[in-house]
Design a protein around this nucleic acid. Structure first.
Lengths: 208, 208
DNA sequence: CGGCATCCGTGACGATACTG
DNA sequence: CAGTATCGTCACGGATGCCG
C-alpha cells in the first residue's frame, strides 16, 4: 500500500483535499449520507465508477476514519458501509459544492443519471431543520431528516420512522425549492406540492 | 481538445465536481482568491504542480468561466490570471473544506509548505465582515477583506488601501482564532495579539 | 450472488528539458 | 517569463475471473 498522496501544504483546505480530493470520494460520501449502503448498491448508484476504484476508495475511507464496514446480522452474508461522524461532517462541503453547482445544472442531459435521493441534498437547506419529510417525485421517493442530530441526513424510499409530512411534487418544483427560488409554503399554495400526513408540519403547510 | 470528463449525474454537487474536482483546481482557486496572480507566482506558491498541469488547469478555468487572463499594462509583457465572479463564488466551498480539514491539520510536518495568506481563509469567517485587517506572522504578512463585496477576499502583503486594523501575532494564535477556538477580542486581551491602527475596529479591539 | 482482485488499454499526472 | 514538448509512471475505466 503506497503512502497516501498529499499536497504537502500546511493548510486545512489542502489537508481536506488530501483525504477527499480523489475522484469519486465525495460522491461516495453523498451516497453514504443517505444511510448505510452495500458495495453493490454503491456501484449501481454511481454509474461509471469501476469496481476496483470503488473498492479502493472504500478502503481509503475506512483507513482515514470516514467510513466503517459493518456485517449485517444473519441471515445473509451482506455487509454495509456507513459514514463515521467524521465522514458525516462532510455534509457542509457537499452542500457548498451543490449550491455552487446549481448554476451549472440546467436541464437534464440525455447522458445524465438520476437518483431520487440526489434531490435531498439541496432540500436539506430549504427545510432548515423542520423535521422528517418524505418526498415523492416521478423519479422515485426519498426522505429528508432536516435538523436531525444523528443518523443519515436523508435516504431513499420512505422514512424509517414516522414522517412529519409527506410531499408529492415534480422534480422541477423540488429543484426550485432546493435552490431557494421557491418557498415550500408558496409551492404548496400554488398547488405544485401536495401535502399529506397529520403532523404539525403537515398541518402548518396545508393551512398556509 | 478532448471533451471534458464528466460524472454525468443530474446532481448539482456532481456538476460542481465536473468543473472543480480535478487535482489542483481548488487550490488554484484558493491562490486566486488572494487576487490576480501571474503564472510564475502560482507555480511558486503551489509546490508540486507541474508546469503543464498548471497551464492546462488555467486553460480549463478560462474556458469554464472561472478565471480570466488579463495583460498587464506596459511596461512589461506580464499577464495575470484572476477569478471571475463565478470563480470567486467558490469561496464557501473552500471555507467548508477548510473547516472540515481543521481537524486533520495538526502540527506542521517538515515536508509541508506554508504561505502566509493560507492563514487568511479561516480568518475570513472569524472576522465576519468586520472590515479590512492586516496581519503579520513570522511566516509573512497578509490581509483579509472580511465582508468586502467585490475584489479578492484576501491577499499577500499589506492591504492595497487603508486597513481598519493591523494585527501582529504568531501563527498558532492565528490558527486558533481562525478555528473559532479563541475569540479575537480575548486574544487581544491576553496579549497574544498586538493591535495597531486608528480605525474604529482597531480602537474597539484595544479597548476590549 | 455479493465483493472484490486481476488484467489491460487509455488518459492524467509529475519531472525535466526546451523554446518564443 | 510563460509556457510547450517529451517521457516515464500512475490512476482510471471496462471487462472478466475468482471465491466465499
Amino acid at each position: 500500500m503506497p503512502p497516501r498522496r498529499s499536497y504537502d501544504q500546511y493548510c486545512s483546505a489542502a489537508r481536506a483535499l488530501d483525504l477527499v480530493g480523489d475522484r469519486w470520494t465525495l460522491l461516495i460520501v453523498r451516497e453514504l449520507l443517505a444511510g448505510p449502503r452495500r458495495y453493490t448498491d454503491l456501484h449501481a448508484d454511481l454509474p461509471g465508477v469501476s469496481t476496483d476504484v470503488l473498492a479502493s476508495r472504500l478502503k481509503d475511507m475506512e483507513r482515514d476514519g470516514l467510513a466503517t464496514r459493518r456485517r449485517l446480522p444473519p441471515p445473509g452474508v451482506a455487509s454495509v458501509y456507513e459514514l463515521t461522524a467524521r465522514g458525516a461532517a462532510l455534509l457542509p462541503v457537499l452542500q457548498a459544492l451543490g449550491r455552487w453547482g446549481e448554476g451549472e445544472l440546467g436541464e437534464r442531459r440525455p447522458t445524465d443519471a438520476v437518483r431520487a435521493h440526489w434531490f435531498a441534498l439541496p432540500l436539506l437547506r430549504a427545510l432548515d431543520g423542520r423535521g422528517v419529510v418524505e418526498v415523492r417525485l416521478e423519479e422515485g421517493e426519498f426522505h429528508v431528516r432536516a435538523g436531525a442530530e444523528e443518523g443519515p441526513a436523508y435516504g431513499d424510499g420512505p422514512a424509517p420512522g414516522e414522517a412529519d409530512a409527506r410531499l408529492v411534487m415534480d422534480s422541477a418544483t423540488c429543484a426550485a425549492v432546493g435552490r431557494g427560488e421557491l418557498a415550500l409554503a408558496d409551492a404548496v399554495r400554488s398547488g405544485r406540492v401536495t401535502v399529506s400526513g397529520d403532523g404539525p408540519l403537515a398541518k402548518a403547510l396545508r393551512e398556509g
